[in-house]
Amino acid sequence: MAEKLLEIKNLKLYFNEGKKNEVRAVDDVSFDIYKGETLGIVGESGCGKSTTGRTIIRLYNATDGQVLYDGADVHTKKSKAELKEFNRKMQMIFQDPYASLNPRMKVLDIIAEGIDIHGLAKSPKERMERVYALLETVGLNKEHINRYPHEFSGGQRQRIGIARALAVEPEFIIADEPISALDVSIQAQVVNLLKELQEERGLTYLFIAHDLSMVKYISDRIGVMYFGKLVEIGPAEKLYTTPCHPYTKSLLSAIPLPDPEYERNRVRVSYDPKSHNYAEDEEVKMREVTPGHFVLCSEREFELIQQEK
């Protein structure tokens, strides 16, 4: 297997820790991300996907656990120069294209901000050329350069966010629902673009999304989260053909397909977390079903999964 770029070890992020309204948004999650791969993360709304991404990139301080990037702990103190370099290597594309763009800045300056901070352009001409090239890459026009974010549609704004992330030539990109706001054709363009960039530049992605057909298409491996926990992770193909955790099964049964007849006859499986009926002393942990395919389960459930195969 390829080299590890990130190791996430027993990561926890609790909001309002110790208080009555404590939220265990990320609750003891461990996984690795390999160099050059795309790891997709799916799961119920509110299960902690964005928080996981934000903690990895240090937008939140971890409550507990570790994030190692190329062996170095992300959450320990760093010098200014180290921080700057680190911020360049890891970029995030946000779920919410409205909140993440400064409404008072023109598109040109939004995209060029990172280029300026990191001194990536040698002359004003090169700076412009880079911005033009980035706009073209994400499917916007040159004419858009002097406009403000509010003058764009939702999808157009998301493309500005993608251009901004790409501008600093990162190694690792956390894409938090980067395509949810886009129409399917632009989704296809962006996904093709992300794939191309990956092949050309060896980028690594953590791709958070709801659209499971797109996630399957873009990801090498997929992790499924439920209520702050990672419940299943494995090769994309495996996860779709032989899902093991009942939540994954329920998720797959709910994917809407662009076929009215199929939709009229679809049968959805629902998931009830109580159905596990775990006993007090049962150890529930990640267990390997087939090489690289892990499921959160008890010994008893693990045996059942083995029998089903």
Partner: peptide, 10 residues
Amino acid sequence: TTALDVTIQA
């Protein structure tokens, strides 16, 4: 429902 997972969406 763009921001929702498929089960909640359903």
